[in-house]
């Protein structure tokens, strides 16, 4: 572990819930930008940003796709903000089994927001650019963080997730078994 500090560029999308008009242009833009070929199809079901809408309770919350989880959480928190009640799920960007958000409709594979950092990286994520009512705004700031050790390579990441799934022993056994056959 080295305890050096380095500056890191942090990208954020700020969401002003009061400004959302529920037009879902962010969903349309996101799905178009990430479709192959680019802009080939618009389909909110493939979008990595979704507006959670409950008209009768005035809930309009754009959320971005974050991590994937294989298990549901209890999701039992109810938040009251300015007299309005929100479900915990309304703020959660996790691709999880309890709802349809952030999964490819065909394959069920999880989707994750990449802040439009594809090549070439956009000056602002596309969803922010189309949000004319300024519900979504983009902020970049620098933050001092602890420097990480060597960045982990693909193999390390892969091994780590195998170990998470099957346990270290089974993975070691499998490595031994497979390599002995070579």
């Amino acid at each position: 572990m080295n305890d050096q500090k380095v500056t890191k560029n942090v990208k954020e999308i700020k969401v002003d819930l009061d400004k959302c008009i529920g037009c879902r242009a962010c969903e349309i833009a996101c799905s178009a930008f990430h479709s192959r070929p680019r802009f080939g199809a618009t389909n909110p079901a493939r979008s990595r940003i979704r507006v959670v809408i409950d008209e009768l309770n005035d809930v309009y919350v754009p959320i971005r796709a974050g991590d994937y989880t294989p298990a549901e959480c209890t999701g039992r928190h109810k938040y009251t903000i300015n007299g309005k009640e929100y479900n915990e799920c309304s703020f959660c960007g996790v691709s999880c089994p309890s709802r349809d958000y952030f999964k490819e409709p065909d394959s069920g594979l999880p989707l994750k927001c990449d802040m439009c950092e594809e090549d070439p990286t956009l000056s602002e994520p596309w969803c922010v650019q189309v949000c004319r009512c300024d519900c979504l705004t983009y902020v970049e700031r620098e933050e001092l963080v602890e420097a990480e050790d060597e960045p982990r390579g693909e193999m390390e990441l892969g091994l780590e997730s195998l170990m998470n799934k099957y346990g270290v022993e089974k993975v070691l056994d499998a490595v031994a078994r497979v390599s002995s056959k070579r």
């Binding site: 178009a32 479709s35 070929p37 802009f39 080939g40 199809a41 618009t42 389909n43 079901a45």
Partner: peptide, 15 residues
């Protein structure tokens, strides 16, 4: 509905 709609000239249309 979760299916795609295809359009003829996507890049031009989106622009």
């Amino acid at each position: 509905g979760t299916k795609d709609i295809n359009v003829a000239r996507p890049a031009e249309l989106f622009e």
